[in-house]
Amino acid sequence: MNDASSPLAALPAVVARGLTVRYPPETRAVLSDLDLEVMTGRFVAILGRSGSGKSTLLNLLGAMEPPQEGSLQVAGKDLAGLDEAGRTLFRRQHLGFVFQSFNLIPVLDVHRNVALPLALNGLEDGQRVTELLAALGIDHLAQRYPETLSGGEQQRVAIARALAHRPALVLADEPTGNLDQETSRQVIELMKQVLAREGTTLIMATHSEEAADSAHEVFRLTGGRLERRP
């Protein structure tokens, strides 16, 4: 859980050194000796074409897979040393996700979808949920089911869900991939605002140059490495 005024705010949210990932049988590395450092509260965009390894990087950052080579620290925690259960716990407590295809639970209404990370942690905080929904302008949709919402609305719900449990880091994988241009811009703006208010670090992977423009820093992933975009 994070707070902009916390002394931790000065520490980097992500420190990655020398990350290398190879998927056999390809001997060519998807990620090759990659370094990344992101300060807390920053909005970072990672650009890259499909197949460039964005998803792989997000997998590592999202504690879904352990790094094969190199070191990775997220919110001060060394991910390489965690086992499966540890990673699960870490994700549950400190990470939030926004997916390209929204991935809301269809059988739960909006309120419960957003409350899900809290429930996972054994918490109940209806007020928090309501506040988040209001912040994203969708509090009137609280009792609705995801199937009945538009793409933009669903994504906003997803954002709310990602933040419900006050994670240190939110990872967004092509959040605007399924949205039209206008909605995309709105969503990115909202995301930026709300996360800034919460003080949560946001790393977004995208192939859209335009979406990347909103970020504080932009990197390009080529040849398995990150390069800063001018």
Binding site: G62, A85, T88, L89, R92, F97, F99, P117, L120
Partner: peptide, 10 residues
């Protein structure tokens, strides 16, 4: 798998 991503245990 989404639930797992969100940190739901086995």
């Amino acid at each position: 798998s989404v639930l797992r991503a969100l940190g739901c245990s086995r």
